[in-house]
C-alpha cells in the first residue's frame, strides 16, 4: 500500500482546495481505517464536459453480504469546496462485474444516499459516509459478478 504522508497530501491539495486542512484531516482518518482506499488526484469530467483535477479516494471497501465479505470498488470525488459540499460517489465495477441499479445506484454507478443528500459539515464526514455505504451495500450490493460465459449454442445435427 502506498503511504501518503500528510505533507504530500497537503501539497496535492494546495492549489485549489479552500478548506485544505479539514480535507486532509478527513482523508487521513479514512485511509487510516480503510487501508484499501487511497487518495489520488485525477481529472473529473463534469456533466457539461468540462474537466478539473480533483482529489479522489479510490479503492475498495469491505462489504458483508449474506455471510461473505466482498471488496466493493468505489471512488469518491471531493470538490474544491469540500467539506461544504458532499463528495460525488461512484461504484467502479471491474470487467467481471455488472452494476445493479436501484434506488441507491444509477446506470453510471453513481451512488445516491440520504446521507449525501442531507450532507452538512461538520455533522457529515467521509468516514461516516463510508460506514453508511458499507451498511447500505450489505443490504443491496451495488455490483454483482457477471454471469460466466456460456458455451455457444450447438444446434443439433443429425
Amino acid at each position: 500500500m502506498a503511504v501518503v504522508n500528510e505533507g504530500a497530501l497537503k501539497k496535492m491539495l494546495s492549489k485549489q482546495y479552500k478548506y485544505r486542512d479539514l480535507t486532509v484531516r478527513e482523508i487521513n482518518n479514512v485511509i487510516f481505517h480503510y487501508k484499501d482506499l487511497k487518495p489520488v488526484m485525477d481529472a473529473y469530467v463534469f456533466n457539461d464536459g468540462s474537466s478539473r483535477e480533483l482529489m479522489s479516494l479510490a479503492g475498495t471497501v469491505p462489504v458483508s453480504y449474506r455471510g461473505n465479505v466482498y471488496n466493493i470498488p468505489i471512488c469518491l470525488w471531493l470538490l474544491d469546496s469540500y467539506p461544504y459540499n458532499p463528495p460525488i460517489c461512484f461504484v467502479k465495477p471491474t470487467s467481471t462485474m455488472m452494476i445493479k441499479t436501484g434506488k441507491h445506484i444509477d446506470a453510471n454507478g453513481k451512488i445516491y444516499l440520504p446521507y449525501l443528500h442531507e450532507w452538512k459539515h461538520p455533522q457529515s464526514d467521509l468516514y461516516s459516509l463510508i460506514q453508511v455505504m458499507i451498511v447500505v451495500f450489505g443490504e443491496e450490493p451495488p455490483v454483482f459478478s457477471r454471469p460466466t460465459t456460456q458455451p455457444p449454442f450447438q444446434p443439433f445435427q443429425a
Binding site: 484499501d36 487511497k38 453480504y65 470498488p73 450490493p141 454483482f144 459478478s145
Partner: peptide
C-alpha cells in the same frame, strides 16, 4: 501494484 485488496462482488444476481 500498491497491494490494495482485489475487488470482488457477490455471485450473479438472479
Amino acid at each position: 501494484l500498491n497491494g490494495g485488496a482485489v475487488p470482488s462482488a457477490p455471485p450473479t444476481y438472479t
